[in-house]
Amino acid sequence: MYFKINRKKALTLMTGCLLSGVLMLGGCGQSLSGTVGIGGSSTVQPLAEKWAKAFETKNPDVKVTIQGGGSSVGVKGCAQGLFDIGAASREMKSSETDQWPKLVTIHVAADGVAVVINPASNSVTDMTLEEIRTIFAGGSSATWTVINREEGSGTREVFEKAVMSGTEIASNAEFLPSNGAMKQKVANTVNAIGYISLGYVDSSVKALSISDVVCNEANCLNKSYPISRYLNFITNGTPDGLSKQFIEFCLGVEGQKIVGEEGYVAIQ
């Protein structure tokens, strides 16, 4: 008898949990379980890792795996089912929306692309967009070592769109596969110039102001800084289940607080 009641109770509890899990949108203390796979942009990666950690702490039975690869990997991987959520540090390209019309873009944070130089070897603190363009196109008389990102990088696309306006980046620039690699290279190379996400900027590199507009949170949010963008999650169709819970967590108060802590720009 005792046993029976208990089982009934457990059953009710379980149904309740399931129901609330399905119906309610996070944060009621019910336990979620399963895995969410995220992959793509190396800009979003450190942020996603912190979100994942906080989300896993709240829901111990959930596992969030995070992979890098670049924004194009995020879009392509999401469309091909490699990830539940693709991460992209740029908007979807028209070629992508044509190829995979089902993909949905969700803004999760904002960010600026900081033009950074090696701090020890150069005293420049400000440049105009034209000056930056000349340097990256390989037409500058000064000896800059230009560092570029790989094809498929969202940061590179945003940078090219905002700065290069159709001009090509010189092919003798070095190519590196991530923000981290770029930052490390700029920090260790004499006269190096590159570009990284605002979230990656620290004292090892010097972020230039562009025509006296500093790359910081406020200027990125009000778009006065010329190279700013949204960081996005991409899902195949409207997100549901655990992915939905996770994205809502990221957009919630807690999630957006993490955005600020990590040096990116909160949007909510």
Partner: peptide, 11 residues
């Protein structure tokens, strides 16, 4: 190695 994961289409 650097580009395969991100490439689509003709690329």
């Amino acid at each position: 190695a650097v580009e395969i994961a991100a490439a689509t289409g003709i690329h």
